[in-house]
Design a protein around this nucleic acid. Structure first.
Lengths: 239, 239
DNA sequence: CGTGACCTTGATGAGCGTCAAACCTGGTGG
DNA sequence: CCACCAGGTTTGACGCTCATCAAGGTCACG
């Protein structure tokens, strides 16, 4: 259900993370073969936009970003939020141009992985190749899991599932899974959840009223993970 | 928006297809390196089930199949329908077991591509590797495009978009894009569209009443593609 | 201290889900 | 060959969930 795969964990974080994500690549190994440039991205700035020439994948160093899918007629859909260790740009592999927007929600850092060099590195290091392919497959599974959530659950369950997903990902990068800050505004969250932002507000208020969480604007504390998990998997109106 | 990528077009179809799908791999090239076994699958039978040991990818020779994502609590979500030239099983790469079910909707044939041999073939043939990766990336894009449709459009638009997608895919494999048979029942279609089957029925009846399509149970004729496209991209209640 | 972005809450209603009944249509067996 | 049956499909009536519209509150920042 995660929005993006962790291709690798930035080296300064390996000691902190309680466990590595399965689709971890190993950034140290990668750096032996590819020149990795760090790039700062201010809040609101694009890492890449749809239509720009595809040249690199990006690994999130720190911060938080969102991926945005666009339609010709102006509709847009947030398809993922990304944090440290997540790999960006994989969906554009094989295309001349990036297929979506990636925008920083706060000041962030991404590590630029030039793609042609990565390809040649993959030729020399089969393990690298396998891990990149595995990372792509893992991304498909996450998207599918999210489709399952959106397709089968109602508004309240979606919000609960979202909070639990954030909690899990925070745990994976060594942060407190039960107390964190939402880096995205309600509108982005609502778009991702395919509901309206007013509904998100109401659901959060309700979850707080029933004692499952504490919410003060963007500060979230999960008080009853078990009950929250129950909410996140109970079928909704859309039976 | 297609449900599955075409890794290759079966050789007996290359002459028929008006154009090759971009993520085409070239089955002839592949057969030089991997033993490809044909397998018949009767309607209702599984190509693979969640939990079975992962060993192969599958290329659809003919017929129609669906992919089904399962949750622990029994919820399930159809995440794609597949026809000739589509590649199955990619989402399970890197796992010990298949991550989803694939079920034949009618008597079908799949070509079994044993995965370990494919990996070694990829090592010797870089072009093959690149195309497999590209096929995975294309799958991610299709899933994302569908997430955009589900997240931003109402019931009527979703059905219209679905019919247009089927039309396009039929064109790609050399079938009539404006006159075809729905191989799935209303329930499967509705599940994929994240609405109820009664709603699908009603929408189809309404599209027929306004002269955009003709629908007789599973036989569909698209009468006004332009108007249908307009319906498929007009934002819904979910503004 | 104003100003704008973001968040919350309420009232109302549209869209679609739910429940129920009737209608095919293809397959089975008498 | 026809009667029957089961699964799939259509249609209607009703109600719930969530979108819409509107107003007010909170906070960061110039």
């Amino acid at each position: 259900m995660h929005a993006t795969p962790a291709l690798a964990t930035p080296s300064n974080a390996t000691a902190v993370a309680p466990f590595q994500r399965r689709d971890d690549l190993g950034i140290e190994q990668l750096r032996e073969h590819v020149v990795v440039a760090r790039r700062r991205v201010a809040a609101g700035q694009f890492v890449h936009r749809v239509g720009q020439p595809f040249h690199s994948l990006f690994l999130v160093g720190f911060g938080c970003l969102k991926t945005c899918e666009l339609a010709d007629d102006g509709r847009e859909q947030v398809t993922g939020f990304h944090m440290r260790g997540d790999l960006l740009g994989v969906e554009s592999i094989g295309l001349p141009h990036y297929a979506c927007d990636v925008i920083a929600l706060e000041d962030s850092e991404v590590w630029e992985l030039p793609y042609p060099p990565m390809l040649t590195a993959c030729l020399r290091v089969p393990a690298l190749q396998e891990r990149l392919t595995a990372a792509l497959a893992a991304q498909i599974r996450r998207d599918r899991q999210w489709m399952l959530t959106l397709g089968t659950l109602g508004a309240e369950s979606r919000v609960a599932a979202f909070l639990l997903d954030l909690a899990e990902r925070h745990a994976q990068i060594g942060l407190d899974p039960h107390r964190f800050v939402l880096r995205m505004c309600r509108v982005d969250m609502a778009n991702y959840l395919a509901i309206k932002h007013e509904t998100v507000s109401r659901v959060l208020s309700h979850l707080a009223a029933t004692g499952l969480v504490d919410v003060r604007r963007r500060d979230v504390t999960i008080l009853d993970p078990v009950a929250l998990r129950r909410v996140a998997s109970s079928e909704s109106s859309v039976h």
